[in-house]
Design a protein around this nucleic acid. Structure first.
Lengths: 411, 411
DNA sequence: GCACTTTGGCAACAGCGTTGCTTAAGTGGA
DNA sequence: TCCACTTAAGCAACGCTGTTGCCAAAGTGC
């Protein structure tokens, strides 16, 4: 079965066809209420919240797993409650027992871990000249990845064809019913909520195109659309040790953008346009930038880089990063993008220098220098992160409001 | 001093800072659960969440009130559930019926409203040379306000004496058991979580002083400590029509600071140091600022203001504000502080001009110019907002995590 | 081999919002 | 005047949540 039923509606949790007896997994409810935003919560929301929390802790534990009592301690829930919740997750196939740990003077604890192959997500990175598609499992591991040339200027139909072709070439799991959906990352600006592209620099024809719905219809899967920098930041957030940190991912390629993770949660802003970092004015009445303003970081930075002065470019980026750190009080800065990767040491050193200088001036002792590093993941980072646009709702982000996805039933 | 028994436990949910999930324990032990951060939720949390949500909607409705069915529609809860929740709140004395509205073809709806005098909070603004204390009721109205000279340099004991004296001069309600706590706002930087002051500019002796606990012990009430700009922003957030907006409050007085409300929630940052807006570098290698860096907005702005060029100062502030708007995608900018208020028209025009220019360049149509206004509340805005540091947890912020205060029992 | 510790499940329970139905209190047409 | 209809709100029973109390399982250590 290579193609999904084209008539299938994707948006809502479509009520399962009566004749189609879904296997073991228990379809709990047909999502009764559209839940007005900011709404009240009932028992289903409570269950979803705790289930998501537990899945998040299990994912953080990795292959090593966690014991029930450890989960109880981390969540503040009763061991008995943890047992019940885990029982539900085990029935759904998301969690499994994985042996026992050594005793500490009593009955040895049973170790639990995620079942990575229980669910999958597809991540797409639609760049200006290249398409990357990855298949990611529940644990966040990249199962498969493909890259193909792409011409964003070739029109919607051609782009959709390319995407469909690449997905068809992914392993069979990519077409199983265990795929939760597709995360698509594009150059901004775009409207995440509506799933519509805006004026992608250099490709004005895409302005207003409902890419999310077009992809959803073509692929027969739910689709989430977001900016490439946001996707990358989301992917990096998963790698954070505590899962609650705040950081900025600064992407310096042909342009300069940022993805902000504040308190462990991707920050998108009121109109999902946050992170437009490139056109922060850093030099009052400075040289005119392509955007029409004067003294934008992007222009200053890329100019120095083009002139073969990467150290100076890095210093400028560092000043902008220091602004960011002061304003948002984040605890980490990650760098990425082609321009950075070409001279990563220089850029890390330049930005770290600016931040160290600032820490020295503030001299807070406690708030010593903010660490700077090159973002892991390399060229695939955006596509990887795009998959997490779909996976993330399953896992309880540290301070998420009610009703994190919970044990999402596939399709 | 007052009639408070110093050993008495101030029961009920300790006022948690809005926006983050830290339980912010009162000096004494909290009764139920220490609730590990980001923890799981049970039925009490569910109840608290919905109660807080309801209180938030009731507050937003103001004296006009709301009907049960309207609350049901806004929350997504069943009318029956709304009835039950309101019954509990009425028993607690927080909510009361207030007549009926005209019929629309059936039984006329009963109107419900907050009982403003059911709870109170005290707001303190400890400025460098002045102390303002206000008594605020549940509806957010300022019941009483007092201002007295203060010398922050006179030492902790003298400052505490002054505070206690001012509180003693507030109306009797300020000493009733219905007072939930005290919100204290100071010039930054400080550590909101620990309740400890940092290097207040000009008063280095305060560095490391545990003001929150000192005030709590002296006054026998729970205390929440925060930066003056944060308090002001929180107070302004309550005035927002939708309650979910994002805005920045820019305070230009003897210094320049910002309070950020993102998605209806006060954003404090990882180490509660967010909003350090004054030392954003706006002119690469510009004139040296008192802070040690070069080209900070604060230095540029105040220099122009001192030179009698308010229009130029406003333009510079506008460029910095435009940076903020682009980075965080907020939908409103509010101005305040002595320097602004002295020439408010000039500053509003200057900042609005910069934002309009940016909107023109982006030319998004939808995202037309971000509105700019002078913050309401005047000199009392900070003290008013400080009271909301205590009140806010009672009301469900739009997207708050679990366990918003709920119906706090006094004593 | 026995006391002890640690782990984890079973059963009963209190409390949450939901469902189904009834009562209250209006409007409006015959 | 009466009766059908609409809207509002409460009562009772219910399903499901995490919690509590208790007990069985499975180790360690003397």
């Amino acid at each position: 079965m290579t193609s999904h039923d084209p008539d299938e509606r994707v948006a809502g949790p479509a009520p399962a066809p009566p004749g189609d007896a879904t296997p073991a997994t228990s379809p709990r409810a047909a999502a009764p209420a559209p839940a007005p935003p900011g709404g009240g919560a009932g028992l289903p929301a409570l269950r979803g919240h705790n289930a998501a929390l537990m899945l998040g802790l299990l994912r953080a534990a990795g292959p090593a797993g966690v014991s029930r009592l450890e989960l109880a301690a981390h969540t503040g829930l009763t061991p008995q409650a943890v047992s019940k919740i885990l029982a539900r997750l085990r029935v759904d196939g998301l969690v499994a027992e994985a042996g026992r740990r050594a005793s500490t003077g009593g009955k040895p604890p049973t170790v639990l871990r995620l079942v990575p192959e229980a669910r999958y997500a597809i991540g797409l990175h639609l760049d200006r000249d290249e398409l990357t598609a990855v298949l990611t499992d529940l644990a966040g591991r990249t199962v498969a990845a493909r890259t193909a040339p792409l011409d964003l200027g070739a029109g919607a139909s051609a782009v959709l064809d390319t995407v469909a072709g690449q997905l068809a070439a992914l392993p069979d799991e990519a077409r199983s019913s265990r795929v939760l959906g597709v995360g698509a990352a594009c150059p901004g600006p775009l409207d995440h909520t509506a799933g519509v592209l805006r004026r992608v620099t250099g490709f004005p024809d895409w302005d207003g195109f409902p890419l999310r719905d077009a992809l959803a219809e073509r692929l027969g899967l739910p689709v989430v659309l977001d900016k490439d920098t946001n996707a990358a930041a989301l992917g990096l957030a998963r790698r954070a040790p505590d899962g609650r940190g705040s950081f900025a991912y600064l992407h310096l390629g042909t342009g300069l953008g940022a993805g902000l993770v504040l308190g462990g949660v991707l920050y998108r802003g009121a109109r999902t346009g946050a992170g437009e970092f490139g056109h922060q004015v850093l030099q009052l009445d400075g040289p005119r930038c392509g955007c029409g303003k004067r003294g934008c970081v992007e222009a200053l930075c890329l100019d120095r880089a083009a002139r073969g002065e990467p150290a100076e470019a890095a210093r400028i980026l560092g000043v902008a990063a220091a602004n960011l750190v002061e304003l948002l009080d984040i605890d980490r800065v990650l760098l990425g993008g082609r321009t950075v990767l070409a001279r990563s040491d220089t850029y890390v050193r330049g930005v770290a220098g600016a931040l160290a200088e600032q820490a020295r001036i503030r001299g807070d002792g406690g708030t010593s220098a903010i660490p700077v590093a090159v973002a892991e993941g390399g060229a695939q980072a955006v596509a990887d992160g795009a998959a997490h646009l779909v996976l993330a709702p399953l896992f309880g982000a540290p301070g998420t409001p009610f009703g994190g996805g919970g044990a999402a039933e596939p399709r």
